[in-house]
Amino acid sequence: MRLEPLEKEFYQLPTIDLAKALLGCILVKETEEGITSGYIVETEAYMGPHDRAAHSFNNRRTKRTEIMYGEAGLVYTYTMHTHCLINIVSCGVDEPHAVLIRALEPHEGVDLMLKRRPVDKLKNLTNGPGKLTKAMGITMEDYGRTLIAPPIYITSGITPEEIMEGKRIGIENTGEARDYPWRFWVKGNPYVSR
Rank of each mutant, 00 (worst) to 15 (best):
68 M>Q: 13
124 N>D: 15
37 S>Q: 14
28 V>C: 03
43 T>V: 03
96 P>G: 02
115 K>E: 13
16 I>Q: 07
16 I>L: 12
6 L>E: 01
77 T>R: 08
55 H>M: 14
50 H>Q: 15
9 E>S: 14
56 S>N: 11
82 T>E: 03
74 L>D: 01
113 M>F: 08
38 G>L: 13
101 I>T: 00
117 R>M: 05
94 D>L: 05
31 T>R: 14
109 G>F: 13
49 P>K: 06
88 I>K: 02
44 E>D: 15
28 V>M: 04
51 D>L: 12
58 N>V: 08
76 Y>G: 03
60 R>V: 05
29 K>F: 02
68 M>H: 07
15 T>C: 03
89 V>M: 02
106 P>H: 03
111 D>I: 07
25 C>E: 04
66 E>M: 10
122 L>N: 09
51 D>S: 12
65 T>L: 11
87 N>F: 03
47 M>V: 14
125 L>H: 07
117 R>P: 02
99 V>L: 01
50 H>C: 14
14 P>H: 05
98 A>I: 00
40 I>V: 12
73 G>T: 03
74 L>I: 00
81 H>S: 07
12 Q>K: 15
77 T>D: 13
62 T>N: 09
115 K>Y: 09
25 C>P: 01
111 D>Y: 10
36 T>K: 13
24 G>T: 04
114 L>C: 10
54 A>L: 06
105 E>S: 14
31 T>Y: 07
28 V>R: 01
3 L>Y: 06
74 L>C: 02
20 K>N: 01
23 L>K: 00
57 F>N: 09
99 V>P: 00
84 C>K: 10
30 E>Q: 15
128 G>R: 10
102 R>T: 07
11 Y>R: 06
60 R>Q: 15
120 D>H: 12
59 N>L: 14
100 L>R: 05
93 V>N: 00
85 L>V: 07
62 T>R: 09
48 G>C: 10
39 Y>M: 12
84 C>V: 15
61 R>I: 12
110 V>T: 12
61 R>W: 11
115 K>S: 07
50 H>V: 15
82 T>L: 13
31 T>K: 12
89 V>S: 00
80 M>H: 11
1 M>Y: 11
